[in-house]
Amino acid sequence: MGKIEDLQTINGEGYQLSRLEHVLATARANSVWPLPFATSCCGIEYMATMGSNYDLARFGMERMSFSPRQADLLIVAGTISKKLGPILKKVYEQMAEPKWVLSVGACASSGGIFDTYSVLQGIDRIIPVDVYVPGCPPRPEQIIDGIIRIHELVKNEPLRRRYSEEYKHLLHDHNIETNE
């Protein structure tokens, strides 16, 4: 869903955000509160990322919001089975706009090694994913890389994007109810 180029062409705004928008978007990018949807191994690496050695707090992200209402970034770390899919979707629906999704690890992104009857082959089938992080599990460096990519997205996103038709289509494609 979320290439930077895509964002910039939405609303015919071109490549340039207005100055105010730019400031606001930068501010927003520096305060992305994560909702860790950590199910398995990647969750442990996420914990390591939160820990002292990698310190996610430097990005202003140590304030974890286990309540979806308060979160900006859904970090899906770990295997998502078909039984869990509807729950993940529900959590995504409960999040307030603007929201982003980071898919951490092979299992969440593509099913990884678990090409089995019970595992969802990638969460992008149920919710739109902005950034994928490869690895099984990814190193904390890679998770931080993914987060920086998310920040890039946030920094380049026009404030109006979430009201655009394209965005509504995107949600519609994933059968996501809005305005809960």
Binding site: I87, I113, V119
Partner: peptide, 11 residues
């Protein structure tokens, strides 16, 4: 339980 059942034994 079973939310991250990954079918290890079948695999």
């Amino acid at each position: 339980v079973g939310y991250i059942h990954r079918a290890f034994e079948k695999l």
